[in-house]
Simulated assay, not measured.
Amino acid sequence: MGAETEEQPHGAAVVADGFGLKGPRGWAFRKVSFRAEPGTLVAIEGPSGSGRTCLLLALTGRMRTKEGHAEVGGLALPRKMAAVRRITALGQVPGVSELDPAFTVAEHLRERALLQRRYDGSVRALLRRPAERAAASRARIDEAVAAAGLDLDALPKGERTSVRDLERLEALRLSIALALMGRPRLLAVDDTDLKLSDADRAEAWALLRSLAASGTTVLAVCSEAPEDALHITTLAGDDTAEPPAATAKDTAPATGTRLAKDTGKDTAPDATTAAEDTTAEDPATAAEDTAAVGETATGGTTDTTTEEGAADALAETGRA
């Protein structure tokens, strides 16, 4: 009974103070400072290429930062990146936790259930009879699907619908359902409002609000944040600029945030493992310079192509 209680969603407080990440071509973001209480909806707002995704990955223990510090659920970053990964989960993050377009919805859900049982299940759970384990997995799938608002019966072919045939909002709901199967304390979603109609955008934010209201802290990268979220705005500018204030309505105020310019693509390659929610330890080979693709170059020159930035980042992680 105690184990079941521990698995219930309970948000993680997030605190950042002078948080910064530097790559081989400059700063991806810098001097980020804010505080979010458990169960807060945090919107990381800014133009594409301003380091939003890098900040998201750094706050979930997927990228190693260079300056300042942050805490997620009382766990210090970057020192306890592996522990932070165990209490956080990624929804959609291009290049890191993407859905496989060839998989069906059911295949994605079953695969994630198997991974959760393998890496996060207790010894007692592993000793259950196969029928009991299957029932527990089905219950976890149903719980996550319901929380994400994904209506399987409304899909063109039900659970057998391929990811490539999903509408944008349905794919977003599926990625969130997969993340919720780990019952994380913090959920992170990239490109929340990308290519969504006004109606679908409203539904997406309503979903994230409901998850935050249920107790899970939510970090969402977006181009335009809703007024009731805690705003963390990323801006392009020089290192001497004054940090802009982060604002929010009906949430705890942030002390301010600022990000240095990042002229490349702000979607970073996975700096840890392919299975982001597992209990794998923080690899010792996570290089200090694992950073954003396409940062600002030094000496007054800038990176002009995302391809060059991506090559640099992959070389730094040894995956080129």
Rank of each mutant, 00 (worst) to 15 (best):
A3H: 13
G11T: 06
L21H: 01
W27S: 07
F29M: 01
V32N: 07
P38V: 08
P38Q: 12
V42N: 01
G49W: 07
G49S: 07
G51Y: 06
L55T: 05
L55S: 05
L56W: 08
L57Y: 10
L59D: 02
L59M: 04
T60Y: 06
T65Q: 10
E67G: 08
E71T: 10
R79D: 15
M81T: 11
A83D: 15
R85N: 06
I87P: 02
P94L: 10
G95W: 07
S97H: 12
D100P: 00
T104P: 00
H108T: 04
A113L: 08
L115G: 01
R117D: 14
R117I: 00
R118H: 13
D120S: 08
D120K: 10
G121R: 01
S122D: 11
S122H: 09
V123R: 13
L126V: 05
R129F: 13
A131N: 04
I141V: 15
I141C: 09
E143H: 09
A147S: 14
G149E: 09
D151V: 01
D153T: 14
S162F: 12
R168K: 14
R173S: 01
L174E: 01
I176R: 01
I176D: 03
A177W: 08
M181W: 05
G182I: 02
P184S: 11
P184M: 10
P184D: 11
P184N: 12
L186Q: 03
D190F: 07
D193S: 03
D193T: 00
A199S: 10
L207P: 00
A213T: 12
S214E: 15
T217M: 02
S223L: 14
P226Y: 12
A229C: 11
L230I: 00
G237Y: 04
T240V: 06
E242T: 14
P244D: 07
A245Y: 06
T251V: 15
A252Y: 12
A252E: 11
T257Q: 13
D266E: 08
A271T: 04
A274Q: 03
D277Y: 14
A284K: 05
A284Y: 07
A292N: 08
G294M: 06
A297D: 11
T305P: 02
G309T: 04
A311G: 00
